[in-house]
């Protein structure tokens, strides 16, 4: 799968409380969650992005709570992929289980850069900077979950 989009960049330790503040967790409606995505780190986030954009970040993206509302909010806000130096482990699981594409790489990315990501080949091209990075593909076990369309579908066959 190839993802092409424009990056919006954040720093290290972007936590789940700023991705989707707990005050909005009295619902599980994906649209309502998406309406408050990234609100406490960037109140204008939804105005800045368009569908297909890519979030880029530093290390430990998605640290904090286990709320799956975080990847749900990001996905339903129209974000196509999250690229980070590293992910907090529960966010990583939740992204795999719910089918939000994520890429772990330390590649240098700034807001506005045009990216082209080939998930299967494990390559990330920064078309703006003219650079290219590679990243290890998911282990087969996880790729099978992704290919099955999420954990619950995959479990039916396990």
């Amino acid at each position: 799968m190839t993802i092409k989009g424009r990056a919006i960049r954040y720093g290290d330790n972007v936590d789940t409380d700023v991705i989707i503040p707990a005050r909005y967790l009295n619902t599980s409606d994906p649209k309502e969650l998406a309406a408050h995505c990234m609100e406490d780190i960037d109140p204008d986030f939804l105005k800045k992005i368009k569908p297909g954009d890519i979030i880029a970040a530093g290390s430990n993206f998605g640290c904090g709570s286990s709320r799956e509302h975080a990847p749900i909010a990001i996905k339903n806000a129209g974000i196509a992929c999250v690229v980070a130096r590293s992910f907090a482990r529960i966010f990583y699981r939740n992204a795999v289980n719910t089918g939000l594409p994520i890429v772990e790489t330390g590649a240098e990315i700034d807001t506005g850069d045009e990216l082209e990501i080939d998930l299967a080949a494990g390559t990330l091209k920064n078309l703006t900077k003219g650079t290219e990075a590679s990243f290890p593909p998911f282990p087969d076990f996880l790729q099978n979950i992704i290919d099955a369309g999420g954990l619950l579908e995959a479990m039916k066959k396990m």
Binding site: S66, R67, E68, P71, I90, R93, N94, N97, T98, G150, L151, L152, M155
Partner: peptide, 12 residues
């Protein structure tokens, strides 16, 4: 700790 989908699969 895990997410809700993990929990659903765990329950089932």
């Amino acid at each position: 700790g895990v997410g809700s989908t993990d929990m659903a699969a765990g329950m089932a």
